[in-house]
Amino acid sequence: MIPTVDLRHADAAAVDEALQRAGFLLVTGHGVDDVLRADVRAAARRFFALPVEVKQRYAVRIGGRGWLAPGVEANGNADAFGTGAGNVEGGDNPPDLKESFAVGPDTPTGDPAVDAVWFPANVWPDEVPELRPAVERYLGAMTAVSRDLLELCAGALGLPPDSLTALAGHPTWTFNINRYPPLTEVGEPAPGQFRIGPHTDFGTVTVLDREPGAGGLQVDVADSGWADAPYDPAAFTVNIGDLLEHWTGRRWRSGRHRVLPPQPDSPHEELVSLVFFFELDHDAVVTPLAPPIGRRADLAPVVSAPFLRGRLDAISVG
C-alpha cells in the first residue's frame, strides 16, 4: 500500500506506483539525525506547556509565524477542492483539535507585498530560547531532504533530476509543529471533529516526523478507503500535495489524509508532529505535464502563490 523507499537508491517504478495509489511514501536514507528530531520535539513541548496567556503573545492566524491557537484551523474545509484525490467533505467542519507553532523562510524577496504574505519575519518565544537553534538546524535538513525528494520524483516520472527543483530557487515553505492534546484536555470531540480533518496538502512534498498513537494518521488509498498509516521510527512519512498532483497532469494523487480524534481507550495520549510543507517560488508557473506522462490534457497552468493562497484561506476559521 505505502512502500518504504531509501532516498539514496529508490526504485523509480515503486515510487511512481505508490504516488498514483495513495500519494504517500515512507522514506529512509534521509540522513537526518534522530537527536535533532528529538531536540525539536522536546523544545516544542516546553513551549506548548507554557500558560495560554504567555503563548498568546505569539498568536497569529494561518499563514503567520508563531502560535496557532486551538480553534483557528479546520483542514476539512479545504477538502472541497477538486484535486482529483477523491475529496468529498468540504463545507463547514468543526475546528481541528490541535495547536501549532509555525515557522517560514527567512529569505525576503525585497518586494513588500510579496514578503508580507510569503516571507514574514519569524517569531521566537523568549521563554524557550532553545527552540530557535534546534528548529533552524532541522529546517536546513528539511530543505535538503525536500530537494532530494523532488529529484526522486523527477526520476520516477522519467524526467531529468532538476526538472522540478528548477522552480524552487527561492521557494516558499511552512514548518508546523503540531500538538494534539489528550482527550482529558479537550473533552469529547464534536461530531465530525478530528485532530486534523480529512484533507490534502497544498504544495509539492510534505515531510512528516510523527509519533504513533491511537488517534493517529490515516491515509485514503485508491479503491481501499481509509487505513492506518504505517509507521517506522527511522523513516519520514512523505506525501505529495495538490501543486505536484497538478504538475503531473494528475498522474499522481495528492495524498489525502486525516488525524483521528483522541480515542476513549487512550484518554491521556498527547502527540507532537513535525510537519514541513515544501512549495516552489511564489511566482513559479506550473504547467501540467502532458500525456503520456500526465493523465489529463485539459489542465491549465497555475501560479504557485495564488494556488496556495486559496487553500490557506479555506482552512482558516473566523
Rank of each mutant, 00 (worst) to 15 (best):
V5N: 02
V5S: 06
D6M: 07
H9F: 05
D11M: 07
D11W: 01
V15H: 00
L19D: 04
L19E: 04
L26M: 11
G29E: 06
G29C: 01
G31V: 11
L36A: 01
D39L: 09
R41C: 08
A42R: 04
A43N: 02
A44C: 11
A44M: 07
F47H: 09
F48N: 02
V52G: 05
V52P: 01
E53P: 13
Q56C: 06
R61Q: 15
G64K: 03
P70S: 13
E73S: 12
N75R: 08
N75E: 12
A78G: 15
D79Q: 03
A80I: 03
G82A: 14
T83W: 07
E89K: 12
N93R: 14
P95V: 05
L97Y: 03
L97R: 04
K98I: 07
S100C: 15
F101R: 09
T107F: 11
T109Q: 03
V114D: 06
D115E: 12
A116V: 02
A116C: 08
W118F: 07
W118P: 02
W118L: 10
N122H: 12
V123A: 10
W124G: 00
P125F: 12
P125W: 04
D126W: 02
D126V: 10
R132P: 12
P133F: 14
P133V: 14
P133L: 12
V135W: 06
E136W: 10
G140Q: 06
S146D: 04
R147Y: 05
L149T: 04
A156D: 07
L159W: 03
L159H: 01
G169S: 08
H170N: 08
H170F: 07
H170E: 10
P171Q: 06
T174R: 15
I177K: 10
I177V: 15
I177C: 14
R179H: 08
T184G: 15
T184L: 15
E185L: 15
E188D: 11
A190I: 03
A190V: 14
G192Q: 08
F194T: 11
F194E: 06
P198C: 04
F202V: 07
V205I: 09
V205Q: 00
V207D: 08
R210D: 07
E211I: 08
P212T: 03
G213R: 09
A214Y: 00
Q218P: 03
Q218C: 02
D220N: 14
G225F: 05
W226L: 01
A229G: 12
P230Y: 08
Y231Q: 05
A234F: 05
A234P: 08
A235Q: 00
F236Y: 13
V238D: 14
L243G: 00
E245W: 00
S254E: 13
S254F: 01
G255L: 00
L260T: 15
Q263I: 01
D265P: 09
E270V: 13
S273E: 14
V275C: 13
F276N: 09
F277E: 09
L280M: 15
L280Q: 15
L280P: 01
H282P: 06
V285A: 06
T287A: 13
P291L: 05
P291T: 14
P291G: 13
R296P: 11
D298W: 00
L299Q: 07
S304V: 11
R311E: 03
V317R: 13
